[in-house]
Amino acid sequence: MTLINVERIKLFTTRSPYWCLALILVAAVGFALIFGLAEQGREATVFLSQIGLQLGLSVFMVLAVLAVTTEYRFGTIRTTFLAVPQRVRTLVAKTVLLVVLGAVVGLIAAFLAFFLTKTLATFPEEPLVLETGEQWRMVAGHAALFAIGAIIAVAVGILVRQSAGAIAIVLLWPLLIESLIQLIPNIGPDIQPWMPFTAGAKFVSPTDGGAGGMFNIGQSGPTAVQGLLVFLATGIVLWVISLIVLNRRDA
């Protein structure tokens, strides 16, 4: 608890986390406004109310990456290791803090977006309600995605150490790299759904693939829970590698 408090002080005594958190809410609310108001909400579904959260997840991962890389940039990681030489304890504390923050922020942003869309949409084709497990999963599931995103971002930050490089990785990986996998002949389309971010997104997508509107999530690939586990496993593997590297490397 002591060290989580230390990481909390460090995170919230600089400005960038506040900007990132504000941006996440803006993204969530902004897209909710669009789908809630467009055509008086005829397009609105539970899934579409959450579109802004994809951008939100990226922004949150930038926040988590910066929480690590700025420490390398300004040398405070060394100050920290002087105070707490057992590096694993610092890494655990930082990760736990960001995982909890991610879960809370993901949950708040998701429900904000859902209820805003529900309030604004006058004539949705289907009522916007949280009744089935699937509907709950599509909204509250973002807490899990944000939490796992934090683990991945911390690991990438530790491994890369430079802000620009680490941010590029966490942004381009889901947006570009996983889509490009699809272009690999023969096997590409089969493995693409199993790529970590694509798989993770399954957890907040409708099971039948009919997302509504122009969004159509394919039927192939992992189920929602399998997708989440793929995403989680990616995070854990990267995190363990980063811990090994962190312990071996000169700070």
């Binding site: 230390v6 002080i9 005594t13 600089t14 420490e71 105070a83």
Partner: peptide, 27 residues
């Protein structure tokens, strides 16, 4: 206690906050 590099501080964190996290880390 060590002073290796005076620049090992975050430029947007106050001096007090810098010392606060260090104090907290060692109870």
């Amino acid at each position: 206690g060590a002073l290796l590099d005076a620049n090992w501080i975050h430029p947007n964190r106050s001096a007090r906050a810098h010392l606060q996290f260090l104090a907290a880390s060692n109870k």
